[in-house]
Amino acid sequence: MSQISRITQTFADLQASNKMAFMPFVTAGDPDMAATKAMIEELSRRGVNLIEVGFPYSDPIADGPVIQASYTRALDNGLKVADIFLGIEELDTDNLPPLVAMVSFAIVYRIGVEEFTRRARQVGFAGLIVPDLPGDEASEMAEVAKKVGLDLVELVSPTTPPERVERILQSASGFVYCISVAGTTGVRNELPTALNEQLEWLRTKTDLPLAVGFGISQPDQVDVLWGVADGVIVGSAIVRMMEPVSESRQSVDDAISAVGNFAASMVAETGK
């Protein structure tokens, strides 16, 4: 498939106008798929550039307490993978920012690598991130994703040695997910200074856009990444805004509009 992917196109357009991508993360089915669909549409209206959709998993070792708690809430409500696919299928994904599925390989393997990938493409996802499928185990998955026309996003961490980075990049497409800190997802006040050096080095190794995630929670963290990263990812800070809903302290609509306001403040920084 020589056609340019939607993810690639999105980053190319942003780069052409000298902007960074803002990519929020939402947990599918927290508290239900109707809310997730409304959230995706709200984020789109607020001008975000890509949206990561997290598939709740029972044992998410890369995730911190906020995202894990949201996964537990969704699973306790009986959410199934089929529900996520059905919900996404009902969206007009051609007119939304590219959706990227964040999903454990435990789920992908159980459903079947081929079947999961095909179905994800069919319902409108543009790419996949499989955080527990490191680069050297990903070649089969990368082949299948390529065949059906999905990007397979690979992760690079601060602990990844240079020779591993080069191996990992071989199966990567879409963008490179640069983990800012050694550790799990979650809000942190500062980004490590070594991050910029790694991003600059990565830039010499790949033409793929570089998106930074883990630990980013506020617009003023975007500044230090100008010129070195092509996009920023925010997860826990957004997922945390859904917590009052589960505790019945806030309506779904109010929580979604709070997320929308936050997204707009991020886009104001990344898109300036």
Binding site: I61, P131, P134, V156, S157, P158, T159, T160, A182
Partner: peptide, 12 residues
């Protein structure tokens, strides 16, 4: 067997 872990653990 093999390794199905986040990239951050691979180096360790």
């Amino acid at each position: 067997g093999r390794r199905f872990v986040p990239e951050t653990l691979m180096h360790a």
